[in-house]
Design a binder for these strands. Structure first.
Length: 555
RNA sequence: GCGCCUGUAGCUCAGUGGAUUAGAGCACUGGUCUUCGGAACCAGGUGUCGGGGGUUCGAAUCCCUCCAGGCGUACCA
């Protein structure tokens, strides 16, 4: 797969070489220059890239920023890439890309095809990203949708950035919540058969459990009532669990979320890995027995408290499973980097997991925990609570059915993980026509339509050097930002920049379309512009693909 | 109490220490004029960047403090 060197890096190198030459000639004092940072100026008249290096060197060099700027600019070697480079007050160096180089990039984009935007940042580093991993004790909630969109998109972005990414869902099919869930299913089943059974006090009161019990009753009859209670609870529970996991898989698949692996928590017990991991922690001196329980002495690793691994009743906690799970990730499957995406309601898990992997002898920097804030669901002014235990659920399924997967993903992705999110279901439905996702998709459909309209015009021979008008160059500039966007999203683990870029790109395309007739009597210009349109389609489709949003040929 | 996150336009939100006027979408108003898809384009304006200090040549951005909201702070997950 072909990957492109970033324009920004090429320019930074040119500036750095210029500085070295200026220093060699004595035009600049030999002060140390670590890196030449480049930014994208807010305004077009300031060029495509700008550096503040003169301002930063001013003090050490004991020269005015403008004098430094001029000394550097004088030494920048001329290339086909740069059209103009100038020093401007108070001490910026502004770089403008050359018209002809920009025009030629249209050919480069078409040659790259769907690989355009891919970069060589990851260099094959093996990375695992785990997300959603919701308890299979009920349907996925809308909140899980946020984790799903975030994790799946981040995985797409990291793959595009050259990481070797595997996506995983941790199925919490063991432990105390599971027992309570099994008992709840049994109670509802028994109730359906006229028995006086109560849902356990900490049980799940949602109607979905009753539905599930009815379903089991229809398919299996009353046979579980004739089995010993413990065995019936276990067997029926396993059936219910399978259905819940199956539903989660369907919901996520319908949202376009893909997984490479669904990993069972129970398997960690079945293979005795939990026991082995606890032994390891014990032998390394990170455990302590107090009040009949086994504690992880995380306070010795800088955490503010210790955490229970095995309760005094002998049952391991979820934390014991999760450390074991990370033992598996790091020491059995040997991932170089692991990312866990959690909801804010699990933020307390972050410091102890960091301490946990440290105790395993793993560099905690190899584990990144991304915490996304909660979403508040509303229907108009009414706030909707989401809890599987109370049964007051807005399921992901419901949101998908109401809003559709594309709008759903686009919406979830449009906010940074750090921000709480308001999701008004009424509004999302009512405004579906005004949702930015349609604006972006419309641009893609319009492009496809233009290409259809052009019919059999063979534009692959088009001469892109004709593409020098302002709307054309603006569109090319915007398209060329995609690789940098991938870099930013991948290094900062922030996929929320994608929807904004998609909107910008669509807007720039619509504006171009309005100003430039594509298919006209001028055959040469038509061919060139069709190439540009084709390139725009590639870039827009790639952006949408990274977000997991459909790129329709027509709407 | 302590910890994490947040506070930017009427609403929902972007904003990697930099450029006399801090951005986008929605909503609102007016225009385009519609032979390639009008689900479009163009033009309009509001901000004590929560308050107050500090660092810096320069702060929405970094530090301190206060206020407000969300979440966490279990032998739950």
């Amino acid at each position: 797969m072909r990957r492109f060197g970033l324009i920004r890096e090429r320019i930074a190198l040119l500036l750095k070489e210029a500085i070295q030459r200026a220093q060699a000639k004595g035009a600049l004092p030999p002060v140390a220059v670590t890196e030449v940072a480049l930014e994208r100026p807010q305004k077009p008249e300031f060029g495509d890239y700008a550096s503040t290096i003169p301002l930063k060197l001013s003090r050490a060099a004991r020269m005015s920023p403008m004098a430094i700027g001029k000394a550097i600019v004088d030494e920048v070697s001329s290339t086909d890439l740069i059209g103009k480079v100038e020093a401007v007050p108070p001490g910026f160096i502004n770089v403008t890309l050359s018209e002809s180089w920009l025009a030629n990039q249209v050919d480069a984009i078409i040659a790259a095809g769907p690989a355009f935007g891919d970069i060589a940042l990851g260099r094959g580093v093996r990375m695992q990203i785990e997300f959603v991993s919701a308890n299979p004790t009920g349907p996925l909630t809308a909140a899980s949708g946020r984790g799903g969109a975030l994790g799946d998109t981040l995985a797409n972005v990291l793959s595009a950035a050259g990481f070797e990414v595997e996506r995983e869902y941790f199925i919490n099919d063991a432990g105390s919540r599971m027992e309570v869930f099994f008992q709840t299913v049994y109670a509802r089943y028994a109730q359906a058969l006229g028995q006086a059974e109560d849902v356990p006090p900490e049980g799940y009161h949602g109607t979905y459990v009753s539905d599930l019990a009815q379903e089991i009753l229809r398919e299996y009859g009353d046979r579980f009532l004739r089995l010993p209670r413990e065995r019936a609870t276990e067997e029926m529970g396993r059936i219910a669990l399978d259905r819940m996991v199956g539903a989660a898989k369907r919901d996520l698949a319908d949202m376009g979320v893909r997984y490479d692996c669904w990993f069972s928590e129970q398997s960690l017990y079945d293979s005795s890995l939990v026991k082995k991991t606890l032994e390891l922690l014990r032998s390394r001196g990170f455990t302590d027995e107090r009040e009949g329980a086994l504690w992880f002495t995380s306070s010795a690793l800088g955490e503010d408290k210790d955490n229970v691994l095995v309760r005094s009743n002998g049952a391991p906690t979820y934390f014991a499973s999760d450390i074991t799970y990370h033992y598996n990730k790091f020491l059995i499957r040997n991932y170089d980097q692991v990312i866990d995406i959690l909801g804010a309601d699990h933020q307390g898990h972050v410091p102890r997991m960091k301490a946990g992997v440290t105790a395993l002898g793993v560099d905690p920097d190899h584990l990144t925990l991304i915490v996304h804030q909660m979403i508040t669901l509303r229907r108009g002014d009414e706030i909707v609570r989401m809890s599987k235990r109370t049964g007051d659920i807005v399921s992901l399924r419901e949101v998908l059915d109401e809003v559709g997967p594309d709008a759903c993903r686009f919406f979830f992705l449009s906010r940074s993980a750090d921000s709480q999110m308001d999701f008004d279901l009424d509004l999302a439905k009512r405004q579906s026509n005004e949702n930015p996702v349609y604006y972006v998709q419309y641009a893609h459909a319009r492009i496809a339509s233009i290409l259809r309209y052009a019919g059999d015009v063979d534009f692959m021979t088009g001469n892109v050097t004709l593409l020098v008008s302002e709307p054309e160059q603006t569109l090319i500039r915007k398209m060329l930002q995609l690789p940098e966007l991938v870099e930013i999203a991948a290094t900062r683990l922030e996929p929320h920049h994608l929807p904004y870029f998609a909107q910008d790109l669509a807007a720039v395309f619509h504006s171009f379309y309005k100003q430039c007739r594509v298919v006209s009597d001028d055959l040469e210009l038509t061919r060139a512009r069709l190439k540009l349109v084709e390139a725009a389609k590639i870039v827009l489709a790639k952006t949408l693909a990274l977000m997991g949003v459909a790129a329709p040929e027509q709407m």
